[in-house]
């Protein structure tokens, strides 16, 4: 057990004991190697379920709005619970966004911030193994020892299997917290920000189109990307609306395009690039390439960053008189 994990458990036990929180949302080990599962702790006795390691990939902010919803069919008084949550930089930014969008109340949240050096992307480990499965894995410092289902062992540098969003992450500490656990993370490495987007932009329109045709023909419309996304809390998604009916239920490319363009656009000025959509996709589609494009534009056109503080207005709920009009045919 590492130091952060130990302190985290102690702190959570205290918070539950003294009634500061009713439930704590954290990560626990899942049965498969290099996988964790969200964990809801309601009693100090259960804090040992909590883990903190290099595979706490999920963005826990996704799980928060549901906790503050009045249970359906409940009669009489209902007080929303006091909720604790462990937050990496990205989780905390999603939390900021959700507070600003009034999906979760700040005063009933207790955020434990943890510095993050980046999480392992299970898909990348899978790719390193090829066509066989992952039988076992052990994280050891900066590398991970994996055993394939064919019995072959391999040592992989964590740097080589970091989630793509973690590689480019500029906010490795929680931007909003009640308490911080563990040491500050090492400073973010110098990476060319939006390098993947810039490279993609330099391709010809035909190449760009063909890329998305290829990627989106993989989509099976399971909506894992949407469900894993903290920003996708709509009770009814435009993808499933019937009046108006924006798109069909098929995997016809046209429908899939409308879905992914629509979803990406609904993230405009809101996406914190946590990578949850990419990690959730069972087909390994790089949806970041869409979302990051919008983030890049938001940064360049409106000089805005997404969800760094509770005070700042988000890019699309504000404007400036002198905003760029160069995209217009006749301004």
């Amino acid at each position: 057990m590492n130091q952060v994990e130990e302190t985290l458990r102690q702190e959570v036990a205290k918070l539950l004991e003294d009634g500061t929180i009713d439930v704590f949302v954290g990560h626990e080990a899942a049965s498969l190697p290099l996988k964790t599962s969200p964990c809801f702790v309601r009693s100090p006795k259960e804090v040992d379920r909590l883990v903190w390691n290099r595979i706490c990939t999920s963005n826990l902010a996704t799980y928060l709005p549901q906790l503050f919803k009045r249970p359906v069919g409940l009669k009489g008084e209902w007080t929303p619970p006091k909720v604790g949550v462990v937050a990496k930089g990205c989780d905390s930014r999603s939390i900021v966004g959700l507070i600003k969008e009034k999906q979760i109340p700040r005063d009933r949240l207790f955020i434990i911030g943890v510095g993050c050096e980046g999480m392992i992307d299970r898909h990348s480990v899978g790719r390193a193994l090829g066509v066989v499965g992952l039988a076992d894995a052990k994280v050891d410092g900066n590398s991970v020892q994996v055993i394939g289902t064919d019995g072959r062992e391999k040592r992989i540098d964590i740097a080589d299997v970091l989630a793509a969003s973690c590689r480019e992450c500029q906010h490795r500490e929680a931007v909003l917290s009640n308490l911080t656990v563990g040491e500050a993370p090492s400073s973010a490495p110098e990476v060319s920000h939006y390098a993947n987007v810039a490279e993609f932009e330099s391709k010809s329109p035909q190449e760009r189109w063909e890329h998305w045709v290829g990627e989106l023909s993989r989509c099976i419309r399971c909506y894992a990307c949407r469900q894993a996304c903290p920003n996708c809390y709509c009770e009814e998604c435009f993808a499933e609306e019937t009046a108006p009916k924006w798109l069909g239920v098929t995997t016809d490319l046209s429908d899939v395009f409308v879905f992914h363009l629509g979803r990406a656009f609904h993230q405009a000025g809101r996406c914190v690039d946590c990578g949850a959509c990419v990690a959730a996709c069972p087909q390994g589609i790089d949806l970041r390439l869409l979302n990051q494009k919008i983030n890049k534009d938001v940064e360049e056109l409106f000089e805005a960053q997404v969800s760094l503080s509770l005070e700042e207005a988000e890019a699309l709920s504000s404007f400036r008189m002198e905003d760029d009009q160069s995209f217009m045919t006749e301004p």
Partner: peptide, 8 residues
């Protein structure tokens, strides 16, 4: 409470 509600 863990299930995300996707169709995967």
């Amino acid at each position: 409470q863990k299930c995300l509600g996707c169709g995967t």
